[in-house]
Design a protein around this nucleic acid. Structure first.
Lengths: 163, 163
DNA sequence: ACGAAATGTAAGCCTGGGCTAACATTTACG
DNA sequence: CGTAAATGTTAGCCCAGGCTTACATTTCGT
């Protein structure tokens, strides 16, 4: 009863599924070279990854053709994308981490979080959004807090992190 | 200017460093078998990991002796531990994920987050703690929100996850 | 429509990080 | 104090997931 099909593909394979979905979403074809560029690996690496995904029944890939997600593959790709979006939103909009770094971190964390945690994170994000509707102060307040260590009054707490 | 010594050991090696620190903290010796039990691997795996950590100058390990962190190793172990604690605190205390799952997720994510994100996460945690000092309502409100999809009024969102 | 450029595939290598089986050393107990 | 149990080490294997190099197929431009 822990969580449904928690037999996730490996992080690497999840990345490939995500990239395939991404390319399709942009109206393009998921070719071996395109995937290689998106993910940052060489063509033969993509090829062998596709072999594994085909075996797992997550994509179809005819010789010299493009790659397509099966329903099962699409479902997983959506899941990964959902995790990515939630993490990115939290990092960028709530923690207000630099967008580039937030993106990098989301890419890595999206493979590490359980379904339960992501579920609650999504809820938390919308909860915060609804409880502080469009509050423009929020960013400033938290930003000052991060830089100074306290809200208004400056009382150094000496935790060593300074920057 | 991106981030200091961002040449982290691999996730696996970070786990070993963390475990060594943990064992010491509990007043024990970091032996090969103890490490194997903590991390969940066999002795030879520990052994070869230690070889790498010795090469990297992060631990000392004399033949048939116990393992000790060098200053550099201790510094990294502390960092990892800091990341772990921040993530665990966020998951367990703010998202209120089940403690066991929170612990598992923290273990995996602690290798994925950048220094910048962890820094801001730590600040966020104390910020929330200070802004909602001991509010016992908080947990209930958010909990209901998670289960119901809205704050007070019940508007099911049908996302299928139920538990 | 044919050959060059782009694209896809195959074979084989490397590294990280596990494992087992076998051997070495140390520890502890009768 | 000597031997069995515990502990540590070595050698050699496996898998994931990259890589290069070489070869196959398709696409395109003239």
């Amino acid at each position: 009863m822990t969580g449904r099909s928690d037999d996730r593909p490996t992080p690497s394979l999840e990345d490939y599924l995500e990239a395939i979905a991404e390319l399709k979403a942009e109206g393009g074809k998921a070719t071996v070279t395109a995937l290689g560029k998106v993910i940052g690996v060489k063509k033969p690496s993509v090829h062998s990854a596709m072999k594994k995904l085909v075996e797992a029944g997550l994509v179809t890939h005819e010789k010299y053709g493009d790659v397509r997600l099966t329903p099962a593959g699409a479902r997983i790709a959506d899941e990964v994308c959902r995790r990515h979006k939630a993490l990115l939103s939290f990092l960028a909009n709530i923690l207000m981490v630099d967008p580039t770094i937030a993106e990098q971190d989301a890419c890595k964390m999206e493979h590490a979080l359980s379904e339960e945690s992501i579920h609650r994170l999504e809820k938390y994000i919308s909860f915060v959004r609804e409880c502080y509707p469009g509050s423009p102060e929020w960013g400033d307040i938290f930003d000052r807090y991060v830089d100074q260590g306290r809200d208004e009054r400056t009382i150094p707490d000496g935790d060593g992190v300074r920057h």
